[in-house]
Protein backbone atom coordinates (compact mmCIF):
# COMPACT_ATOMS: atom_id res chain seq x y z
CA UNK A 1 0.00 0.00 0.00
CA UNK A 2 1.61 3.27 -1.06
CA UNK A 3 2.19 5.91 1.62
CA UNK A 4 0.27 9.14 1.19
CA UNK A 5 2.55 11.22 3.39
CA UNK A 6 -0.13 12.32 5.87
CA UNK A 7 -0.84 9.32 8.13
CA UNK A 8 2.03 7.97 10.25
CA UNK A 9 4.07 5.55 8.24
CA UNK A 10 3.56 2.67 10.66
CA UNK A 11 -0.20 2.82 10.23
CA UNK A 12 -1.73 -0.33 8.79
CA UNK A 13 1.64 -1.97 8.42
CA UNK A 14 1.45 -4.18 11.51
CA UNK A 15 -2.17 -4.09 12.52
CA UNK A 16 -2.74 -7.52 11.11
CA UNK A 17 -1.00 -10.09 13.25
CA UNK A 18 -0.09 -7.78 16.12
CA UNK A 19 -2.01 -7.64 19.36
CA UNK A 20 -1.19 -5.14 22.04
CA UNK A 21 -1.95 -6.24 25.60
CA UNK A 22 -0.47 -6.10 29.03
CA UNK A 23 1.66 -8.99 30.20
CA UNK A 24 -0.65 -9.53 33.13
CA UNK A 25 -3.67 -9.89 30.93
CA UNK A 26 -1.82 -12.19 28.58
CA UNK A 27 -0.68 -14.46 31.38
CA UNK A 28 -4.08 -14.55 33.00
CA UNK A 29 -5.76 -15.18 29.66
CA UNK A 30 -3.42 -18.08 28.98
CA UNK A 31 -3.86 -19.52 32.45
CA UNK A 32 -7.61 -19.27 32.57
CA UNK A 33 -7.91 -20.87 29.15
CA UNK A 34 -5.81 -23.90 29.97
CA UNK A 35 -6.77 -25.01 33.45
CA UNK A 36 -5.78 -28.63 33.60
CA UNK A 37 -7.81 -30.50 36.18
CA UNK A 38 -6.57 -33.41 38.20
CA UNK A 39 -8.39 -36.67 37.57
CA UNK A 40 -9.83 -36.91 41.02
CA UNK A 41 -13.20 -38.59 41.18
CA UNK A 42 -13.91 -40.07 44.61
CA UNK A 43 -17.57 -41.06 44.48
CA UNK A 44 -20.81 -40.47 42.62
CA UNK A 45 -19.98 -36.83 41.79
CA UNK A 46 -17.24 -38.21 39.57
CA UNK A 47 -19.92 -39.48 37.19
CA UNK A 48 -21.14 -35.92 36.71
CA UNK A 49 -17.57 -34.76 36.30
CA UNK A 50 -17.13 -37.36 33.57
CA UNK A 51 -20.30 -36.11 31.92
CA UNK A 52 -18.81 -32.62 31.98
CA UNK A 53 -15.80 -33.99 30.20
CA UNK A 54 -17.87 -35.65 27.49
CA UNK A 55 -19.25 -34.09 24.34
CA UNK A 56 -22.68 -33.06 25.58
CA UNK A 57 -21.36 -30.57 28.13
CA UNK A 58 -17.80 -30.47 26.87
CA UNK A 59 -15.48 -28.89 29.39
CA UNK A 60 -12.97 -28.58 26.51
CA UNK A 61 -14.82 -25.43 25.45
CA UNK A 62 -13.20 -23.79 28.46
CA UNK A 63 -9.80 -25.31 27.82
CA UNK A 64 -10.11 -27.44 30.94
CA UNK A 65 -10.60 -30.81 29.31
CA UNK A 66 -7.07 -32.12 29.74
CA UNK A 67 -7.60 -34.25 32.84
CA UNK A 68 -4.16 -35.10 34.14
CA UNK A 69 -3.42 -38.30 35.99
CA UNK A 70 -0.62 -36.68 37.99
CA UNK A 71 -0.80 -33.68 40.30
CA UNK A 72 2.47 -32.34 38.91
CA UNK A 73 0.79 -31.37 35.65
CA UNK A 74 -2.48 -30.11 37.08
CA UNK A 75 -3.62 -26.60 38.02
CA UNK A 76 -7.09 -27.39 39.24
CA UNK A 77 -8.28 -30.00 41.68
CA UNK A 78 -11.96 -30.84 41.32
CA UNK A 79 -12.67 -32.78 44.50
CA UNK A 80 -15.65 -34.77 43.26
CA UNK A 81 -17.13 -37.08 45.86
CA UNK A 82 -17.12 -38.06 49.51
CA UNK A 83 -13.79 -37.41 51.21
CA UNK A 84 -13.21 -39.91 53.99
CA UNK A 85 -10.67 -39.45 56.76
CA UNK A 86 -8.60 -42.16 55.17
CA UNK A 87 -8.62 -40.20 51.91
CA UNK A 88 -8.03 -36.81 53.55
CA UNK A 89 -4.30 -37.30 53.97
CA UNK A 90 -4.06 -38.27 50.30
CA UNK A 91 -6.05 -35.22 49.26
CA UNK A 92 -3.69 -33.00 51.19
CA UNK A 93 -0.63 -34.72 49.73
CA UNK A 94 -1.93 -34.40 46.16
CA UNK A 95 -2.70 -30.74 46.77
CA UNK A 96 0.81 -30.16 48.06
CA UNK A 97 2.26 -31.85 44.98
CA UNK A 98 0.45 -29.54 42.57
CA UNK A 99 2.48 -26.63 41.18
CA UNK A 100 1.40 -23.07 41.94
CA UNK A 101 -0.87 -21.40 41.02
CA UNK A 102 -3.41 -24.02 42.00
CA UNK A 103 -7.13 -23.94 42.49
CA UNK A 104 -9.64 -26.23 44.18
CA UNK A 105 -13.28 -26.76 43.35
CA UNK A 106 -15.31 -28.50 46.05
CA UNK A 107 -17.93 -30.37 44.09
CA UNK A 108 -21.00 -31.78 45.78
CA UNK A 109 -22.63 -31.68 49.19
CA UNK A 110 -20.23 -34.14 50.85
CA UNK A 111 -17.19 -32.11 49.88
CA UNK A 112 -18.77 -28.76 50.74
CA UNK A 113 -19.73 -29.74 54.26
CA UNK A 114 -20.18 -33.43 54.92
CA UNK A 115 -23.54 -33.67 53.18
CA UNK A 116 -25.74 -36.56 54.29
CA UNK A 117 -22.87 -37.90 56.41
CA UNK A 118 -22.63 -34.76 58.49
CA UNK A 119 -24.27 -36.04 61.63
CA UNK A 120 -23.98 -39.83 61.75
CA UNK A 121 -21.07 -40.49 59.43
CA UNK A 122 -18.04 -41.49 61.43
CA UNK A 123 -15.83 -41.65 58.36
CA UNK A 124 -16.52 -38.51 56.31
CA UNK A 125 -14.60 -35.24 56.55
CA UNK A 126 -17.08 -32.47 57.32
CA UNK A 127 -16.09 -30.41 54.32
CA UNK A 128 -12.87 -30.64 52.36
CA UNK A 129 -12.04 -27.05 53.33
CA UNK A 130 -10.84 -28.53 56.63
CA UNK A 131 -8.13 -30.26 54.62
CA UNK A 132 -7.21 -28.00 51.68
CA UNK A 133 -8.15 -24.38 50.85
CA UNK A 134 -11.16 -24.26 48.57
CA UNK A 135 -11.71 -21.57 45.94
CA UNK A 136 -15.15 -22.44 44.64
CA UNK A 137 -17.94 -24.48 46.19
CA UNK A 138 -20.38 -26.23 43.88
CA UNK A 139 -23.29 -27.56 45.96
CA UNK A 140 -25.66 -30.27 44.84
CA UNK A 141 -26.04 -33.97 45.31
CA UNK A 142 -24.58 -34.42 42.80
CA UNK A 143 -24.42 -31.03 41.04
CA UNK A 144 -25.63 -30.82 37.49
CA UNK A 145 -22.86 -30.64 34.92
CA UNK A 146 -23.91 -27.07 34.18
CA UNK A 147 -23.26 -26.25 37.83
CA UNK A 148 -19.73 -27.58 37.60
CA UNK A 149 -19.17 -25.54 34.45
CA UNK A 150 -20.43 -22.51 36.36
CA UNK A 151 -17.94 -23.31 39.10
CA UNK A 152 -15.19 -23.58 36.52
CA UNK A 153 -16.12 -20.14 35.18
CA UNK A 154 -15.87 -18.73 38.69
CA UNK A 155 -12.39 -20.19 38.94
CA UNK A 156 -11.59 -18.49 35.65
CA UNK A 157 -12.86 -15.21 37.15
CA UNK A 158 -10.43 -15.76 39.97
CA UNK A 159 -7.56 -16.42 37.61
CA UNK A 160 -8.43 -13.29 35.63
CA UNK A 161 -8.26 -11.23 38.81
CA UNK A 162 -4.69 -12.20 39.63
CA UNK A 163 -2.14 -9.37 39.66
CA UNK A 164 1.50 -10.03 38.92
CA UNK A 165 2.95 -6.67 39.97
CA UNK A 166 4.97 -6.66 43.15
CA UNK A 167 2.88 -5.90 46.26
CA UNK A 168 -0.28 -5.83 44.21
CA UNK A 169 -3.30 -7.47 45.77
CA UNK A 170 -5.58 -9.66 43.76
CA UNK A 171 -8.92 -8.15 43.04
CA UNK A 172 -11.68 -10.26 44.46
CA UNK A 173 -13.64 -11.61 41.56
CA UNK A 174 -17.21 -10.44 41.50
CA UNK A 175 -19.70 -12.90 40.07
CA UNK A 176 -21.41 -11.44 37.08
CA UNK A 177 -24.73 -12.40 38.61
CA UNK A 178 -25.85 -13.31 42.10
CA UNK A 179 -28.88 -15.46 41.52
CA UNK A 180 -31.14 -12.84 43.11
CA UNK A 181 -33.06 -10.26 41.07
CA UNK A 182 -31.60 -6.82 41.51
CA UNK A 183 -34.24 -4.39 42.69
CA UNK A 184 -33.93 -0.66 42.17
CA UNK A 185 -32.63 0.81 45.43
CA UNK A 186 -34.83 3.52 46.88
CA UNK A 187 -33.30 6.47 48.80
CA UNK A 188 -35.28 5.68 51.97
CA UNK A 189 -33.45 2.36 52.29
CA UNK A 190 -30.32 4.34 53.12
CA UNK A 191 -31.95 6.77 55.49
CA UNK A 192 -30.52 6.55 59.01
CA UNK A 193 -33.15 5.89 61.65
CA UNK A 194 -33.67 8.26 64.58
CA UNK A 195 -32.30 5.85 67.20
CA UNK A 196 -29.12 5.27 65.20
CA UNK A 197 -28.65 9.01 64.82
CA UNK A 198 -29.00 9.48 68.56
CA UNK A 199 -26.38 6.84 69.35
CA UNK A 200 -24.00 8.36 66.81
Amino acid sequence: MPHDGRTPWIEDRFSEGVVITSLEQAINWARQSSLWPLTFGLACCAIEMMAVGCSRFDIDRFGAGAFRATPRQADLMIVAGTVTYKMASRVRRLYNQMPDPKYVIAMGACVCGGGPYFKYGYHVVKGVDLVVPVDVYVPGCPPRPEALLEGLMRVQDRVRAERIARDATDELPVPHHTGYPELPIKPEDYRVSASEEASA
Binding site: Y85, K86, S89, Y122, H123, V125, K126, L130
Partner: peptide, 28 residues
Protein backbone atom coordinates in the same frame (compact mmCIF):
# COMPACT_ATOMS: atom_id res chain seq x y z
CA UNK B 1 -9.72 -53.24 56.27
CA UNK B 2 -11.85 -50.09 55.88
CA UNK B 3 -10.80 -47.59 58.52
CA UNK B 4 -7.26 -46.20 58.59
CA UNK B 5 -4.72 -48.29 60.47
CA UNK B 6 -4.47 -45.81 63.33
CA UNK B 7 -8.21 -45.41 63.82
CA UNK B 8 -9.38 -45.64 67.41
CA UNK B 9 -12.45 -47.70 68.27
CA UNK B 10 -14.90 -49.72 66.26
CA UNK B 11 -17.42 -47.38 64.62
CA UNK B 12 -20.47 -49.62 64.27
CA UNK B 13 -20.63 -50.44 67.96
CA UNK B 14 -23.67 -48.76 69.42
CA UNK B 15 -21.67 -47.06 72.18
CA UNK B 16 -19.00 -45.77 69.79
CA UNK B 17 -17.98 -42.20 70.48
CA UNK B 18 -17.08 -40.04 67.52
CA UNK B 19 -13.58 -38.57 67.66
CA UNK B 20 -13.24 -34.81 68.04
CA UNK B 21 -10.46 -34.64 65.52
CA UNK B 22 -8.43 -36.94 63.35
CA UNK B 23 -4.89 -35.92 62.37
CA UNK B 24 -5.68 -32.27 62.84
CA UNK B 25 -8.93 -32.41 60.89
CA UNK B 26 -11.89 -31.29 62.94
CA UNK B 27 -14.39 -34.10 63.03
CA UNK B 28 -17.43 -32.53 64.68
Amino acid sequence: ILCPEDWVGHPLRKDYEFPDEYHGIRAR
